[in-house]
Design a binder for these strands. Structure first.
Lengths: 341, 341
DNA sequence: CAAGTTCGTGTAATCGATTACACGCTGACG
DNA sequence: CGTCAGCGTGTAATCGATTACACGAACTTG
C-alpha cells in the first residue's frame, strides 16, 4: 500500500537532486545557466518525482497567468465555436491556456472584470461589441491598460486592438452578386444595428444598391437579430406583402435559413421564387435546403490571428500603445440558393 | 495625471479601513465573524479601492483553483459546443471558471496531465473516451484520485464517474421507428467502434433488427467516423449496389446529412427513395434538406449534469470513492427524412 | 468580585516558485 | 603569488491571501 503521494514540489525535486530549489528553477527556465552535471541530475530528479510546476505559485510570483480569456455572448453558437477552436490551437502553440466565459443573466459590464483584475487571465479576446470596454480598462483617461483584442465586433474605442472582417466590402460583394444575376428587386434582412461591425453590412448593401442605381424599398428592409426566429418572422413579413423582392441579402446564415424555411411552407421556393444569400458560411449553410450561397468568414483564422495578436501584446512583442487593426477578407461561396432573375 | 494604479491588494484595503489583512479576508469569506461596524468600514474600503481578489494567491494558499477543465477532441464540432455552453453555465452558477482543451497533435496521454497536476484545474470533464485515464489518475492500484467525470463516451474503467446517454436503447428506438414505418430493408452507417458508447449504437440497431426478425445485411453495414466525408463515402457505397436498403440508420447526424447529400446528387431522393434517421439532433439537423429525423441527445443537460456532478465531487458533497453513473435518455424527433415504406 | 466565556481582532506562518544578491571556487594575468 | 573576473550555486526575500493561535475587552455567573 503506497501512502498517498502528494504532488511533488520544487523542494522535493531539489532534495532528491541534492541541490537548492533555486537551481531546480534555473534548470527549468534557463538551463544554460547551470552546469551540465547538475542539470542532468536535476532533470533525472524531475522525472523521478513526476514533478509538474504549480501554476498558482508561479502566477503569484510572476504576476501573470499564461492564460487568456475568450468572451463571447454565446459559445453554443456554431459561429463562435469554430473561432474558439482556432483560439485554442493558437494559444496552445504558445503555451497558453484558454478560459471561456459566456454572457449570463448578470450585469454585462461586471461579468468579465472579475476575471481580469484577479490575475486569472493575462488578456481578453472579446467577441461581444455590446460590452463597455471602459469598465474593463479602468478610467477613461488612462486608455486601455489590459491586453485586449476585439474580434467579430468592432469596439467604438479606436484604441482597442481589433481583428475584423471587412463587413462593408463583403456585404457590397454579396449584394453585387445578386445584381450581377440580374435582380433589381432586392431586399435586406438586417443584422442588429447596435453592433457596429454588423451595421456595416447594411451600409455595404446600400452602397452597392446605390452604385447600381437600384431603389432601396423600405418595406423590404427588415430588422433581424441573427436568430432563426427573426428569419422566420421576416419570411412572414414578406409573405404579407403584395409585391415581393426577387432576391434577399441576409445579415447572417441563420436568418437566411429561417426565411427560406418559412417561405417554403407557404409554397414560395428558393431559389425559384426568391434568391437568398447569407453571411458567415456556418457549417450548416452547405447542407441547408437548398445549400446556401453566402459570404464566408475565415472564422478559424480570426481566432488564430486574434489570439496571436493578443499574446504578442501580452508578451510585449507588439507595443501596447499602438493599436493593431487587422482586416480580413470574406469570400463569396456560390451554392444553390441564388440564381439568375 | 494619475500615477499608474497598481491592482489593489488585500493589504491596501486593510490600510484604508484601518484593520489587518486578516479582518478583510474574514469580511470577504465569513462576514458574520466580524462586527457590524468594521464590516461596513471594510466593505466601503473594498469598493473605494476597487479591490478584487488575486486568484493566484488564493489558489496557492487553498490548494484549489475553482476552475474545471473541459477536454474534448474537437471543440469546433457543434456537438461539443452546445455541451460546453451547458458546462459554462453550470460552472458559473457555482462560481467556477472553465478551461477548455482540445486534443492537438501531441501525445494523447500527455496533453491533460500537465493541466491537472499543476493546480490549474480542480477537476476534469472528459469528452473523449480514447484517453487512457490511468495516465491521469496515477498508478492503477490507487484508482482515480483526481475528480473526473466522463461524458459522451464511456471509459472502460468502472471507477470513473460518468454521465451518458443510453445509446443502446436510443439506437434500438431509432431502428424500431424505421421498422414501424414498414421498412424491412434497413442499413446502418456505424459509428467508430473503438468508442464504447458509440459501439452501443450498433448493438442497439442489431437488437432491434433481431427482435423484429429482420435480416442484417453485411453489405448495408457501413463503417463511418462521424464526419460528413464518411457519409458521402457511404452514399457512394450504396449507389454502387444493385440492391439498396429502403431505410438507413446513421450513427450521427453529420454522416446522415452526408449520405443524403451524396444520394441526391445521383437522383436518389430522401425520403422518397430512402428514409434516413440520424443521431444527436445537432442544430443543423432541423434545417437540412430534408429536415432530418433523429434521436435528440440532451446536450446541454449532459453538460450541466456532468459539471454539477464534478463540482459535487470536488467539494466533497459526493463521496469520491463511490462512482456516479448517470444515464440520460435520448428522444425521437420526427421530421421529414423518414416516411412509410 | 474572581473566574470563566465569548467575541472581535491582530500576529505570524504558510502555500510554492522566482530571482537579486552574496559567496566560494577556478583560472588568468601581471 | 596576489588580485580579479567569471562561473555556478545557495540564501533569503517576495508575490497576496488564508487561518491557527493569541490576546484583550466585555460580559456572565456563582
Amino acid at each position: 500500500m503506497v501512502p498517498i503521494r502528494k504532488t511533488p514540489t520544487i523542494q522535493d525535486v531539489a532534495r532528491q537532486a541534492n541541490v537548492s530549489a533555486a537551481t531546480v528553477s534555473r534548470v527549468l527556465s534557463s538551463p544554460d545557466r547551470v552546469s551540465k552535471t547538475t542539470r542532468e541530475r536535476v532533470q533525472a530528479a524531475v522525472s523521478a518525482t513526476g514533478y509538474t510546476i504549480n501554476q498558482a505559485a508561479r502566477s503569484l510570483r510572476l504576476r501573470n497567468a499564461r492564460t487568456i480569456l475568450m468572451a463571447a455572448p454565446n459559445i453554443g453558437n456554431p459561429y463562435y465555436s469554430t473561432v474558439l477552436d482556432g483560439v485554442i490551437r493558437a494559444a496552445s502553440e504558445r503555451g497558453y491556456s484558454v478560459l471561456v466565459a459566456t454572457r449570463l443573466g448578470q450585469d454585462p459590464n461586471r461579468w468579465l472584470a472579475d476575471y481580469l483584475h484577479s490575475n486569472r487571465a493575462d488578456g481578453l479576446l472579446l467577441f461581444d461589441g455590446s460590452l463597455d470596454t471602459f469598465g474593463i480598462n479602468g478610467s477613461d483617461e488612462e486608455g486601455p491598460n489590459l491586453p485586449l483584442v476585439a474580434a467579430y465586433d468592432e469596439i467604438p474605442d479606436p484604441r482597442v486592438n481589433s481583428v475584423l472582417v471587412d463587413n462593408r466590402a463583403a456585404a457590397a460583394r454579396a449584394t453585387r452578386h445578386l445584381i450581377e444575376l440580374g435582380h433589381t428587386r432586392i431586399g435586406h434582412l438586417m443584422s442588429p444595428s447596435r453592433n457596429k461591425s454588423l451595421h456595416e453590412r447594411r451600409i455595404g448593401f446600400e452602397q452597392a444598391m446605390q452604385e447600381a442605381g437600384l431603389p432601396i424599398r423600405p418595406e423590404w428592409m427588415m430588422q433581424g437579430d441573427h436568430s432563426l426566429g427573426t428569419g422566420i418572422a421576416a419570411g412572414e413579413h414578406l409573405l404579407a406583402q403584395s409585391e415581393r423582392p426577387t432576391a434577399l441579402f441576409c445579415g447572417n446564415d441563420e436568418m437566411a435559413i429561417g426565411v427560406v424555411h418559412r417561405l417554403r411552407l407557404a409554397g414560395v421556393e428558393c431559389p425559384r421564387d426568391l434568391s437568398v444569400i447569407g453571411f458567415d458560411d456556418i457549417a450548416v449553410a452547405a447542407f441547408a435546403a437548398p445549400p446556401l450561397t453566402t459570404m464566408r468568414q475565415p472564422r478559424e483564422d480570426i481566432g488564430r490571428f486574434a489570439t496571436n495578436t493578443l499574446i504578442d501584446i501580452i508578451e510585449g512583442v507588439i507595443p501596447a500603445d499602438e493599436p493593431v487593426h487587422v482586416t480580413l477578407r470574406a469570400e463569396l461561396v456560390l451554392r444553390e440558393s441564388t440564381r439568375r432573375a
